[in-house]
């Protein structure tokens, strides 16, 4: 229990440090939220700066932002002046989570079986195919994968819209593009983990004890091989949920990734701080979950107890 509290404490300090760093780094960048190709009349610009407290001393602005963040309110967006940052987060987060989870499902459903199959046919045709395929998917950037997938499924077969679209159909291609490289990574990892277990004593001993082949596979190969996969899945899930910028842009999905970069480019201080803090919180939560799952699979790991 005390370990959990320690973790949560460290998490809170990380969130605060990220908030502080984002706030001051953004202010250090040149240009402001109201700079546009057409200059605002000076008195209008002064009024806008006052409306959003940008005329106050920086430290006062920081304390105001920190106080707001503690209450879960990051203030109004400086670009979408009539929308609050929390409203934008509430709209965009489900899109990114849906996209990330879809990609994770694809990665798990394709990657692990492919890796295990490759391990069981070591140096055979299946193994070579999985290894070649995963190397290819890992070396091609995801916007190239996106181009190929759009050309094939949207313009060739006409099954899915090339971008935007409505309902679940809008998510199939982006989830595929985001999930495939992770599936490749998982396949390689699952393959080497399974090979390591197969080479060990466990499965043979189990077989000698007269256990059925399916029971040997599930208890003595799959379960021990899962531990390194879980360690990998924690940060990977976080990366999938937060790192979908390019895919969101290519498929015009209104997720957090696109906001993340645009907010910094637009000098939308409040939105950029809000998103960075949200991402950090998400990352911490997912790592915690992965550690907990690890402790369930591998008794040597006592992440959150004792």
């Amino acid at each position: 229990m005390s370990a959990l509290l320690r973790r949560l404490g460290a998490w809170a300090i990380t969130l605060w440090a990220v908030h502080l760093a984002t706030f001051f780094l953004l202010r250090a960048a040149r240009g402001g939220p109201f700079d546009e190709a057409r200059s605002l009349p000076p008195e209008v610009e002064a009024q806008l700066r006052a409306d959003f407290h940008l005329d106050e001393p920086l430290i006062q602005q920081y304390l105001r932002a920190l106080g707001g963040a503690l209450r879960g309110d990051f203030g109004p967006s400086l670009r979408y002046r009539d929308v609050r940052v929390t409203e934008i987060l509430a709209d965009a987060l489900p899109v990114s989570i849906g996209l990330g989870l879809g990609a994770l499902m694809i990665a798990l459903l394709l990657g692990i079986p492919a890796g295990l199959a490759a391990a069981s046919s070591r140096r055979g045709l299946g193994d070579s195919l999985v290894r070649a395929g995963s190397t290819l998917l890992l070396s091609v950037p995801n916007f190239v994968i996106a181009g190929i997938v759009i050309g094939w499924f949207s313009f060739g077969l006409g099954w899915f819209p090339p971008a935007g679209g409505v309902g679940w159909r809008a998510f199939v291609l982006p989830c595929l593009c985001l999930g495939l490289p992770t599936a490749a990574q998982l396949a390689r990892l699952a393959r080497s983990a399974a090979l390591e277990v197969l080479d060990g004593e466990g499965p043979r001993a189990a077989q000698a004890r007269g256990l059925s082949p399916s029971r040997v596979r599930s208890r003595h190969i799959l379960k021990p091989a899962l531990a390194p996969l879980l360690a990998f899945l924690g940060p990977t899930s976080a990366a999938l949920l937060t790192g979908s910028l390019v895919i969101e842009q290519v498929f015009a999905l209104p997720g957090l990734g696109a906001h993340f970069v645009q907010a910094a480019l637009n000098r939308d201080y409040t939105l950029a701080v809000g998103i960075t803090v949200t991402y950090t919180a998400l990352l911490g939560l997912l790592t915690l979950l992965a550690d907990w799952a690890m402790s369930r699979v591998d008794p040597r790991v006592e992440a959150l107890s004792g």
Binding site: I150, P161, P162, A163, G165, Q249, V250, A252, P254, Q262
Partner: peptide
Amino acid sequence: FLTVDSQVTALNLFLAGEV
């Protein structure tokens, strides 16, 4: 009115008859 930052994406949508 859809937000489509990428001009390539907008072209894809146009060619596919979506916009």
